[in-house]
Design a protein around this nucleic acid. Structure first.
Length: 424
RNA sequence: GGAGAGAUGGCAGAGCGGUCGAUUGCGGCGGUCUUGAAAACCGUUGAGGUGCAAGCCUCCGGGGGUUCGAAUCCCUCUCUCUCCGCCA
């Protein structure tokens, strides 16, 4: 949620800026400002009213205590009007605030000045391409076929138990999952991230805090009986640890890493995008989250990008980094790098990580603040990124590393898998 | 799931319906003292809205009510704790 104060300062500039995200703020922004004016006005009237009532109440108190109940009772009559007006004004104020809030949450985050314009994912800017793309023989198999050949991932069994998008990992496939999770966690801890294990279900306040609600309501699994949402990413519970928290400046940057299963309804997906491991309802991910001082956040974003690049180098996967253009940038993000690995049998790039700076968009909603050395309170910046999401990494590993004798495990992973190849 | 107790500032813990945004202790910060530190002593120390400012207003788990006036009384919800039941 954008800060009202920022919005008021230069609405024209904001509207122009939001256009990069293809968001038309021409109407909503002036409406928000008008509503805020109304809010201030009503608040002022209410405050004055309450102030008068408070003064009267005190006078009445003194009169009663000094035994002048006749005068007190006379004064009482004067409070009736004030009470009625206050009641009216506070109802008015509440509805104005609600209206204001409803508009405010519909405005996306401002894109960073370096965000390239664009009309679709085609316009994302490739900032780096690294690693050798393997040339596979013509009979190379896609990962869903390899999964069957080596009996390591059973998609049909998942369908039987749950439905499409819930694969069952078996044998060396399950071991590989465990290896990747531990490898990613160990690396993150090495890089100074503190590990947390968060709940996999969250309440709606947390959903609002990180911006999944109300924007992506239909994308989360929801359990009405208990009013809980299955997390689509560990970003939600981990960032919400710091909801309504005032940190000390010395605590920053705050770095957390969490492994979690992630659950996504993926309503509206179809076709080759969802084949095999490409898009699942349940998958595993290691997520890194940082909370920083505003002036440090872009430096941190670059560090996180470099960190994730290091993981991909360790896994010996060819990858590229995209800077998302305005059209592809998410609602909450100011700047996002997507990391993609090349899956050589599918012959396509697969997104395995998305690293974003949300600036104060999340922290403003969450009231995540820090106190500086002089005692002043500021909103912190929040950032997060996958480091990494498993399924597409597995897809690329299987496809890129397939040989006659089985699937070769990258060296860095061998201590974790306990085997050097997947074979029958 | 059943019965009971409770929810107050970073923590602990007071608070007859009227000067309580809240006693006190600890912690934090500043100072005196000290070569430095500790101890002791003094001072200071919640958040938000609005305003140039002084100030005014709101917040004692959430919501509602009684009252001229609520941290204090009533209703309700949520959560925590204790006991019982069930149980990885």
């Amino acid at each position: 949620m954008l800060q009202l104060q920022v919005l008021r300062e230069n609405p024209e500039e904001i509207i122009k800026h939001l256009a990069i995200k293809h968001f038309d703020g021409g109407e909503i922004i002036p409406n928000i400002i008008a509503l805020d004016d109304r809010r201030k006005e009503t608040q002022k009237q209410l405050d004055d009213n309450l102030s008068q009532a408070n003064i009267l109440a005190k006078e009445i108190g003194v009169l009663f205590q000094t035994g002048k109940s006749a005068e007190a009772n006379k004064l009482k009559e004067r409070t009736t009007d004030l009470k009625n007006t206050s009641k009216e004004l506070s109802i008015n104020l509440e509805s104005t605030k609600k209206e204001l809030d409803e508009l405010l949450v519909r405005v996306p985050n401002l894109p960073h000045s370096s965000v390239p314009p664009g009309n679709s994912a085609e316009d994302n800017m490739i900032v780096l391409e690294e690693g050798k793309i393997p040339v596979l023989p013509d009979n190379a198999l896609a990962h869903w076929d390899l999964a069957g050949k080596y009996n390591i991932i059973d998609f049909n069994l998942g369908v039987k138990i749950s439905g499409a998008g819930f694969p069952v990992y078996k044998g060396q496939g399950a071991r590989l999952q465990r290896a990747l999770i531990n490898f990613f966690l160990d690396k993150a801890i090495e890089a100074g991230y503190a590990e947390v294990q968060p709940p996999l279900m969250v309440n709606s306040a947390s959903g609002y805090g990180t911006g999944q609600l109300p924007d992506k309501d239909g994308q989360m699994y929801y359990m009405p009986l208990d009013d809980l949402y299955m997390i689509p990413t560990a970003e939600v519970p981990v960032t919400n640890i710091y909801r309504d928290v005032i940190l000390k400046e010395a605590d920053l940057p705050l770095k957390n890493v969490a492994y979690s299963s992630c659950f996504r309804r993926e309503a509206g997906s179809y076709g080759k995008d969802v084949r095999g491991l490409n898009r699942l309802h349940q998958f595993d991910k290691v997520e890194i989250v940082q909370i920083t001082r505003p002036e440090k956040s872009y430096q941190t974003l670059e560090e996180m990008r470099e960190y994730v690049s290091g993981l991909l180098r360790n896994l010996e996967l060819p990858f590229r980094i995209l800077k998302l253009c305005g059209a592809d940038l998410s609602f909450t993000s100011a700047l996002t790098y997507d990391m993609e690995v090349y899956s050589s049998a599918q012959k396509r790039w697969l997104e395995v990580s998305s690293i974003s700076n949300f600036e104060t968009f999340q922290s403003n909603r969450m009231k995540l603040r820090y106190k500086d050395d002089s005692g002043k309170i500021h909103l912190a910046h929040t950032l997060n990124g996958s480091a990494l999401a498993l399924p597409r990494i597995v897809a690329a590993l299987l496809e890129n590393n397939q040989t006659e004798k089985g699937i070769k495990i990258p060296e860095a992973l061998v201590p974790y898998t306990g085997f050097t190849a997947i074979h029958n």
